[in-house]
């Protein structure tokens, strides 16, 4: 089942996050419509231009709303936010054409590619074909500059994270776990499987804004074995 096929709006829970922000949380599971609800509702809130709101961003299942408590109280802002919760899943904002990402699978840039093939009992060509099937979207950024989660993939492509962390995973690494792909844009440490690399960099300070891929954008993976 894809995220797009679920029309019911998940319940929203509003939670204060410190004394200058709140979280509108739509669930505990990225596959339940919560991600689609978060991206769509963030767009509704941005267009609402509520007084005192300083920042809106989405995670996998939530909308972050930063506010100035000198201008608006948590109670008033919570009320304004609840008033705007739609009864059905909101349409995703127009994110533009599907974005192609060319991947070199395996090789030195994808040290865990074969292990993922083995875990899924697929040949390398079968895994590449499966990885390039469907219309996964950018689910969220936020972990580090330019880092993006992309999904969902087909349900039979779910592998767990590695038991141990890999240190110094370079920018442009293609990570795979939990039915999702992630692309790094800076050097990080991760427990995800590193299945390949790409020349695409989602974080470039020479660009404005510095990040290209925003939540909701459809991704088209391409490429072959390294």
């Amino acid at each position: 089942m894809t995220v797009e096929s679920i029309g019911t709006m998940p319940n929203a829970i509003l939670h204060p996050l410190g004394d200058a922000a709140l979280l509108v949380k739509f669930g505990n599971d990225v596959g339940s419509g919560a991600n689609r609800a978060a991206i769509g509702f963030a767009d509704i809130l941005k267009r609402a231009r509520l007084p005192g709101v300083a920042e809106i961003a989405t995670s996998l299942v939530s909308v972050f709303v930063g506010y100035d408590p000198a201008r608006v109280s948590f109670q008033v802002l919570s009320g304004e936010i609840r008033l705007r919760l739609p009864g059905t899943l909101p349409a995703l904002p127009d994110m533009g054409e599907p974005f192609p990402i060319e991947v070199e699978y395996g090789g030195a840039g994808g040290p865990d590619f074969q292990a993922v093939c083995d875990a899924l009992e697929l040949t390398p060509d079968e895994l590449i074909a499966a990885h390039q099937t469907g219309t996964p979207r950018v689910l969220s950024g936020g972990f580090s500059p330019g880092f993006v989660y992309i999904g969902p993939h087909e349900a039979n492509l779910t592998v767990p994270r590695r038991e141990t962390l890999r240190e110094d995973v370079p920018a442009g690494s293609v990570l795979f776990a939990a039915g999702q792909t992630a692309i790094t844009a800076t050097r990080i440490r991760t427990g995800w499987n590193v299945i390949g690399r790409t020349d695409f960099r989602n974080f470039d300070l020479a660009r404005t804004p510095p990040v290209t891929l925003m939540p909701g954008r459809i991704i088209q993976f391409a490429g072959g074995l390294a």
């Binding site: 300083a54 920042e55 950024g141 936020g142 330019g146 510095p210 925003m214």
Partner: peptide, 9 residues
């Protein structure tokens, strides 16, 4: 850099 969570900072 307030307001830059959307870019991962």
């Amino acid at each position: 850099r307030p307001g830059k969570r959307v870019y991962g900072a």
